[in-house]
Write a protein that binds this DNA or RNA. Structure first.
Length: 290
DNA sequence: CTTTTTCCCTGGACGC
DNA sequence: TGCGTCCAGGGAAAAA
């Protein structure tokens, strides 16, 4: 599942390919990708554009063009970008769109589950679009105090608040579970009730797991791959995600698997204990044996 | 306003 | 071998 480290890895790999290139042809095979717009019209708008910069905001890839317009690519669950010589990726049944570049190569968009989206925005639309959906960049100027302000007054479970992209940009199920494990915070803690020390731990842990994720070029579980088809290696360093029933790397207690806000959540019931003051929250949780 | 629920989508794993 | 069922989950939209 592409989260901030995966999207940033894709950005870094694909930027040198796209920047300066002109789109000679654009084929949008899956109309769902650009819904509710007409794929033929979107493709026609893109042809002839020259890429000036490939950026990222949260989990959005931002392909900027000379005209000032921008193509926002969201990979959602199983989306990926591949780069190869012309025509090499055309036969893949999961290729949903192809950008033909003027340097004799193609960038193909693959997406098995078709949740991904492409949005072509005018220059003036870009900031409003992103600001309405995405909070501060955790590897940017986010401080523990600012994180505290984002969580202030929120009664939702900490896990749910962190998955909300407006709280902090770019976290998904994997990196939230990892950050909560590192910060020793229970996923069902009320989001607005962390003290300063806990906020500092959480802030540090979020930055730690995201930085490490980028260093390891993301986590490859099934579909995620770099544009050259290679895999990330962060999955080898998971302490919580997907490890229900396995011993905690800190204390040996079996990790527990629960569902929070419809998302599978794995944590250490000993290291990440809920405080006495919030028993009602813990009791409401749906707990299943790992 | 906030929070929760439903829906979208495919393919791999699993039970029989 | 095949079929049915469950599960993975980001985020928009609807419901509460």
């Amino acid at each position: 599942m592409p989260e901030l480290p995966e999207v940033e890895t894709v950005r870094r790999s694909i930027a040198p390919v796209l920047e300066g290139a002109r789109l000679e042809d654009v084929e949008i095979r899956d109309p769902r990708l650009v819904r509710p717009f007409d794929p033929m019209l979107v493709a026609r708008e893109l042809v002839g554009e020259r890429v000036t910069e490939v950026g990222r905001r949260g989990k959005y890839l931002i392909v900027r063009f000379e005209s000032g317009r921008a193509l926002l690519i969201h990979l959602r669950m199983t989306g990926s970008l591949r780069h190869a010589r012309r025509g090499a990726l055309a036969d893949d049944p999961h290729t949903r769109a192809v950008l033909r570049l003027d340097n004799a190569s193609d960038v193909a968009y693959r997406d098995v589950r078709r949740f991904g989206t492409w949005e072509l925005l005018e220059e003036r639309e870009l900031s409003p679009f992103l600001n309405a959906r995405v909070g501060p960049e955790p590897l940017g100027s986010l401080t523990a105090a600012r994180l505290g302000l984002r969580l202030q007054g929120r009664r939702a479970p900490l896990k749910s608040a962190l998955l909300d992209q407006r709280t902090v940009a770019g976290l998904g199920n994997i990196y939230v579970d990892e950050a909560l494990w590192w910060s020793r915070l229970h996923p069902l803690r009320s989001a607005g009730r962390l003290d300063d020390d806990e906020l500092a731990r959480l802030h540090r842990a979020i930055r730690r797991v995201l930085r490490r994720g980028i260093e390891r070029q993301g986590s490859t579980l099934r579909e995620y791959a770099l544009p050259d088809g290679s895999s990330g290696r962060m999955q080898d360093e998971f302490h919580a995600y997907g490890r229900g029933g396995e011993p905690c790397d800190r204390c040996g207690t079996p990790l527990q698997r629960i569902v929070v806000g419809g998302r599978t959540t794995t944590f250490c019931p000993r290291c990440q204990s809920a405080p006495q003051s919030e028993p009602a929250v813990a009791r409401r949780a749906v707990v299943t044996r790992a």
